[in-house]
Simulated assay, not measured.
Amino acid sequence: MTHLPGSNPRLPDDINNSHTSPLADFAFMAAGLLLLIVGLSLAIGWSATWLGPHIPLSWEPQIVIGKTEEKSDHHQKIERYLQNLTTSLASETGKSAIPVTLHYLPDVDLPNAFATSGQNIHVTAGLLNKVSSENALAMILAHEYAHIEYRHPAILMLEQLAHTLLFAMLGLNEDGAGAIAGNTGLATLMSFSRKMEHASDIRALELLLLRYGHTQGAAEFFNAMMLEEDYEETGGVLSLFASHPDTNERLQRIAGYTTDGELTPLPDWLTPATEE
């Protein structure tokens, strides 16, 4: 017959206690989690940059900003001009150009242009009021086309989707599954990175040189923006797209690629305020 001890053995008081404070333990675990998230984020960015250009264009969701009602004849004429100019610039690539669709936003006074998922480029009436030559306008259109050519919207969508999934798995996202669909669909409303903007600037200058034989006028719009003190602080949905690098930095870059030449004037009827 087995006899149990009269009393249980007394364990040392510190057998399950850490030699460090609970606060230090928490800080150590938090730092480890932060390093894990940073490491995974870097891996996501690298993977998206590699995979994005391989995604079929047809897989990109169509994101079009602005009103959908019928435009006036004059606004349709402006939209066709913008479409033809962009198509002409894209044809200078020397390879199969990506088809893009131009959308003119006649009711938006904020000077801006931006590319969205689904090979869409948007141009506001405010931008047309800030350029006085076709060359200056072509620089902006070529820049936005370069974003599409380099598949920057697809890369952003992959990054957003992967980060949403990561945060959901880590319990850092309150609305996991629902946020995945919503955030992925709005991925191209995010800011393009400075690296993407730099690459698109250089590509745009290359396209201008191919089309006109020079890059004169490429800096005109950005010089005009330097005079707009409140440009970077402008509110509204389009401020999400005003994510360009520092204007001085951009002007210095363009200056390094500028070659002299004769400017091509814009059509007289292109002024947004002009109605036929």
Score class of each variant (00 low, 15 high):
D107L: 04
H75K: 02
V108N: 03
K130N: 01
T86V: 06
I121E: 05
S88W: 06
L127I: 14
K130D: 06
V131I: 15
T116N: 12
K71Y: 01
E60I: 15
H122F: 15
G45I: 05
G118E: 07
L57W: 12
T87M: 03
G94N: 10
D73C: 00
K71M: 08
G52H: 11
H143P: 13
W59S: 15
T68R: 11
P111K: 00
T124K: 05
L110K: 07
W50L: 13
K77E: 02
T93I: 13
A48Q: 07
G39T: 06
Q62M: 06
T116S: 15
D73P: 01
W46T: 11
N129I: 01
S133H: 10
G52W: 12
G52R: 09
Y104D: 00
N84W: 04
P61N: 14
P53L: 14
W46C: 01
A113Y: 09
W50Q: 12
V123Q: 04
T93W: 06
N112L: 12
L110H: 06
H103M: 05
L51Q: 12
H74T: 15
G66F: 03
D107W: 03
Q62S: 12
A142I: 05
N120Q: 14
W46K: 10
E69L: 00
A97C: 08
L128K: 11
H54L: 14
L105I: 00
F114M: 02
V108G: 03
G52Q: 13
P111G: 03
E134Q: 15
H122S: 15
H143N: 09
M139H: 04
A115S: 12
H143L: 11
T87S: 14
I98E: 08
L110Q: 09
P111Y: 00
P56C: 04
T87L: 06
N129G: 03
P61A: 09
L127N: 10
I65G: 05
A90K: 06
A113D: 07
E92R: 15
K95F: 08
A142K: 03
A136L: 12
A113V: 08
D109F: 01
A115W: 04
K71D: 02
N135S: 05
T101E: 10
I63F: 14
H75S: 06
K67I: 02
Y81A: 00
V123S: 00
K130A: 03
M139Y: 03
L51Y: 10
V131M: 08
